[in-house]
Amino acid sequence: LSSLLHSTASWNPIRTLAASVAATVDGNQSLVWLHHYVYWLGPIIGSLFASFLYRLIFADGEKRLIA
């Protein structure tokens, strides 16, 4: 969160996808797609981890993974 003011990276995967597509249309394909998967896998893995922690710690008795 603290790197937001110092970085030009987008936190929105769709916005990053649009910028990559626009750069590809302009003919700049050198490093545009090299690490693009990070913008998709990061939020997916983070949300799966958060849902696991919720079910492990905060869920009701029936929905908890460990009773």
Rank of each mutant, 00 (worst) to 15 (best):
Thr16Trp: 08
His35Phe: 11
Ala59Trp: 00
Leu41Lys: 06
Leu1Val: 09
Leu17Ile: 07
Asp26Ile: 07
Pro43Gln: 11
Lys63Ile: 01
Asn28Val: 08
Trp11Phe: 06
Ser10Gly: 08
Ser20Phe: 03
Tyr39Ile: 04
Ala9Gly: 01
Ile45Tyr: 09
Thr16Glu: 13
Ala50Ser: 10
Trp33Leu: 13
Ala9Leu: 14
Phe52Met: 02
Leu31Gln: 11
Leu41Trp: 12
Ala59Asp: 10
Leu4Phe: 02
Trp33Asp: 02
Ala23Thr: 08
Phe58Arg: 02
His35Ile: 02
Gln29Met: 10
Ala23Met: 07
Ala18Phe: 05
Tyr37His: 08
Ser2Trp: 15
Trp33Ser: 03
Pro43Ser: 12
Pro13Ala: 04
Gly42Thr: 14
Phe52Ala: 04
Leu48Pro: 01
Ile14Met: 11
Gly42Trp: 07
Asn28Glu: 13
Gly27Pro: 01
Leu5Tyr: 05
Ser47His: 03
His6Gly: 04
Asn12Ile: 14
Leu53Val: 02
Val21Gln: 09
Ile14Glu: 15
Gly61Ala: 11
Thr8Glu: 11
Trp40Glu: 06
Ser30Arg: 10
Trp33Phe: 11
Glu62Gly: 00
Val32Trp: 00
Leu53Trp: 01
Pro13Trp: 01
Val21Trp: 12
Asn12Leu: 15
Ser20Pro: 00
Asp60Arg: 06
Pro13Cys: 04
Glu62Ile: 01
Ser20Ile: 06
Leu53Glu: 01
Ser2Asn: 14
Thr24Trp: 09
Pro13Glu: 03
Phe52Lys: 01
Asp60His: 05
Ser2Asp: 10
Ala59Lys: 02
Gly61Trp: 04
Tyr37Asn: 01
Tyr39Thr: 13
Ala50Gly: 15
Gly27Ser: 05
Tyr54Arg: 03
Leu53Ala: 03
Leu4Thr: 08
Gly42Phe: 13
His35Tyr: 14
Trp11Ile: 03
Thr16Ser: 11
Asp60Phe: 00
Thr16Asn: 13
Gly46Asp: 15
Ala59Met: 02
Thr16Lys: 15
Ala50Gln: 05
Gly27Arg: 14
Leu53Cys: 10
Gly27Ala: 07
Trp40Ile: 10
Phe58Thr: 00
Val21Pro: 01
Phe52His: 04
Phe58Ser: 02
Leu48Thr: 05
Trp40Pro: 05
Tyr54His: 11
Ala50Thr: 12
Ser7Gly: 05
Ser2Ile: 11
His36Asn: 11
Leu56Met: 14
Val38Glu: 14
Leu65Val: 13
Leu53Gln: 04
Asp26Arg: 15
Ala22Ser: 10
Gln29Ala: 14
His36Ser: 12
Thr24Arg: 10
Leu53Lys: 05
Leu5Glu: 15
Ser7Ala: 08
Thr16Leu: 10
Ser47Phe: 06
Tyr39Asn: 14
Asn28Lys: 12
Phe58Glu: 03
Thr8Cys: 15
Phe49Tyr: 12
Glu62Thr: 06
Asp26Lys: 12
Leu41Cys: 08
Arg15Met: 08
Leu34Ser: 11
Leu56Ala: 07
Arg15Trp: 06
Ser47Gly: 00
Gln29Phe: 05
Glu62Asn: 02
Ala22Glu: 14
Ser2His: 12
Ser10Gln: 12
Ala59Pro: 03
Leu31His: 11
Asn12Arg: 03
Tyr39Cys: 07
Thr24His: 08
Val21Ile: 12
Arg64Val: 02
Ser3Leu: 09
Gly61Val: 07
Ser7Thr: 12
Ala9Tyr: 05
Leu31Phe: 13
Leu4Asn: 03
Leu1Trp: 06
Ile66His: 04
Thr8Asp: 14
Leu48Asp: 01
Glu62His: 00
Val25Gln: 07
